[in-house]
Simulated assay, not measured.
Amino acid sequence: MSIPNEALQKLVQEIETQAIQAQQQINTVKSQIGLKQREIRMLQLTSSEVSTLPSDTPVYEGVGKMFVFSPIAEVDKRLTTETSELKTDVENLGKKLLYLETTHKNSREHIDQIFNSGGRG
């Protein structure tokens, strides 16, 4: 049994579209992971700098165009919380990336199978 040419072309086109979309999403997710990893690194550097300060050192955080006094303990707590949230985000993006890479690979394999079988069903 053979698949009609029109149906075969439509199938290949749909799979190719899916592969292209997956590749675009892969690039987006990789970019997001890179940004979040840079943010984590900045927070870790800030945290390490703050931890070296004596506990009575006045620390100010930027809020809009002004700076507000914050106790070192609160600053450190905020940095730790933000770092933890970003690590969770990176982990979730990693899972999404794995899914998208699998989808892309499967799409490519399906296209190869169609061409290798010559359209024979």
Rank of each mutant, 00 (worst) to 15 (best):
L43K: 13
Q21H: 09
E39P: 01
Q44N: 15
L35W: 05
Q37R: 11
A22E: 05
Q18S: 14
M42T: 11
Q23S: 13
Q21W: 03
M42I: 06
S47K: 10
G34Y: 03
L45D: 15
M42W: 05
L35V: 07
T46Y: 04
Q32T: 06
E39W: 00
V29Y: 01
A22M: 10
S48P: 02
N27S: 11
Q25C: 00
Q44V: 07
I20F: 11
K30V: 01
I20N: 12
L35S: 10
I33V: 14
A22H: 05
Q24H: 08
Q37K: 14
E49Y: 10
Q25W: 00
T46M: 08
A22S: 12
Q44L: 10
N27V: 01
E49C: 01
I20A: 13
L35M: 10
S47N: 12
Q44S: 11
Q21E: 08
S47C: 02
E49R: 13
I20H: 13
L45A: 13
Q25G: 01
Q18G: 06
Q32D: 15
Q44M: 09
E39D: 10
K30R: 15
Q18C: 06
R38V: 00
M42F: 10
K30P: 00
L45E: 15
L35E: 14
E39Y: 04
T28L: 10
E49H: 09
I40S: 04
A22G: 06
I26M: 04
Q37Y: 02
Q37E: 13
S31V: 00
I40R: 04
R38Y: 03
Q21V: 01
K36M: 08
Q32S: 13
S31H: 14
I33T: 09
S47R: 09
K30W: 04
T28W: 06
R41L: 10
R41E: 14
